[in-house]
Amino acid sequence: MPEIAPLRTPGDVISEVVDDAVRHSLLVRVTHWLNSFVFLALVVSGAAILLAHPRLYWGETGAFGSPAWIELPLPLNLYQTGWGRSLHFLAAWISVLNGSIYVLSGIASRRFSDDSRKYTMSQRWAYLAVVFVLFPLMIATGLAMSPAIAALLPGLVSSLGGHQSSRTIHFLVTDVLLLFVFGHVAMVYLSGFRSRIRGMILGRPGRMETKERL
């Protein structure tokens, strides 16, 4: 896009950024892209783990030979869970540490309450639900599937409806998060892809996106 020199007359307000949603602090930008990267790793490795038993149950137990709550139309593959599990848990550690830094800094800087003028109500609710409901639910259901954590926190497993229920909820919340990601990326695309991506990388609107009010 060619840069057009603005016409100016004395007393005009110049270079006022109309779209201030593209201003993000360094911490938000770093945690956002790290989160994007580990979320992708979690989805890919999670799918690799799921293929070893693409059936979901409700309650404590379930296995081949027992009725499933949902039989997923996916191919059975028993040979991707070694690296799948190892990558999943490494990415989960990074995701939890990264997410904790994001949430704590957001609370300290009052970002979660001050962002109200940048986003619509539905956007605010979607982001808050992802950060404060869906991500914690992923961590809780993930931990509940660990036999060691189940020994430490038996109440966590029973409150989620049992071991297999935790696994099923983990899968269903993944689907909701994937829907959120599709919606998020679609909105970024529709509201000016280059400007938004630039904002999330550089933290400021690019020169060509600066709208000047005359």
């Binding site: 783990i49 799921l50 070893a52 038993h53 059936r55 404590e60 137990t61 379930g62 296995a63 081949f64 028993l78 869970t81 599990r85 599937m145 036999p147 189940a150 071991h163 297999q164 696994r167």
Partner: peptide, 12 residues
Amino acid sequence: TQHVCEYGWSAI
């Protein structure tokens, strides 16, 4: 006890 297979199934 519950036996939790790394594949994803479990049984008591």
